[in-house]
């Protein structure tokens, strides 16, 4: 265990802290957004958190973050570390989570699931729950999420190399579920990049045995995205979205929240 004084010496790049959040897992939570992501989703609503650096991000110590968390007490039941992709900071988060749990708070990660399970095992151990994104299945994701050179986030037909970790996230989901580490699985429903029904099939395949896990089906919207008009053109209709939710229920995903 690292003493709190050690937290003074560990630094992370922080995008921002929201003292109260009602949408990052159960209850009222303090949300911590770290800078930097390993993927590049075209619809990302916080694209300024994607690069390793950003003019609004600041380097802070873990002690600073811990102090900010304490300010939100006793109104919160826990924290959620988001990003960017928080598991990029897997080593640094371990001592923070250990200290936060000592305060009686739960520690959540809001992750895209693209991480090396073995490598971040120590972090998983001190994480209470994951809010876990599934981006879709199939090669269309290469354009949707993995074109790291597409910094403007625009519609693009670039040749993208299939990254080795592209199917890593469903596998990771399969490993985390039996550990009781998943609170919700989320899918942003967008047209034209993946087969939504096949994606829901893949999710149901691993999630349906865990009825307590929430499946959040979110209809994409362009607000906040870099190429708002393009993303808006890929929005499913409400009917298409509801139909997908119905389908998900039909194949065993009972605990669904549909966000239009």
């Amino acid at each position: 265990m690292l003493p709190e004084s050690k937290l003074e010496e560990i630094y992370v790049k922080l995008h921002r802290i929201i003292p109260f959040s009602n949408v990052e897992g159960q209850g009222n939570r303090c949300s911590i957004f770290l800078q930097g992501c390993n993927i590049n989703c075209l619809y990302c609503h916080n694209p300024e958190t994607i690069p390793a650096d950003d003019e609004h991000a600041k380097v802070v110590s873990l002690a600073y973050i811990l102090n900010e968390i304490k300010k939100s007490m006793p109104f919160i039941r826990g924290i959620t570390v988001s990003g960017g992709e928080p598991t990029l900071h897997y080593k640094k988060l371990v001592p923070l989570f250990i200290e936060v749990r000592k305060l009686g708070l739960t520690c959540y990660l809001d992750s895209n699931g693209f991480f090396d399970f073995e490598k971040i095992k120590e972090l998983i151990e001190v994480t209470d729950k994951f809010l876990f994104d599934i981006k879709g299945v199939g090669r269309g994701l290469e354009h949707l999420c993995f074109d790291l050179k597409n910094v403007k986030g625009e519609e693009s037909k670039n040749e993208v190399e299939k990254p080795s970790y592209m199917s890593q996230n469903i596998e990771n989901l399969g490993k985390l579920l039996p550990l009781g580490k998943i609170e919700e699985v989320r899918l942003v429903h967008i047209k034209g990049f993946y087969d939504a029904y096949k994606t829901v099939d893949a999710i149901a395949c691993v999630v349906k045995d865990y009825p307590e896990v929430l499946f959040k089906l979110i209809r994409v919207h362009g607000k906040g995205a870099r190429d708002e008009a393009f993303i808006t053109s890929k929005m499913p209709s409400v009917q298409e979205h509801e139909a997908l939710a119905e389908y998900a229920k039909g194949i065993g995903l009972q605990h669904i929240v549909v966000i239009n």
Partner: peptide, 19 residues
Amino acid sequence: TYVDHLDAVVDIIDGAFAL
């Protein structure tokens, strides 16, 4: 948004009473 997140509302109330 809080109507869909009553757990968060009750957390805030619990916190207020604790203070």
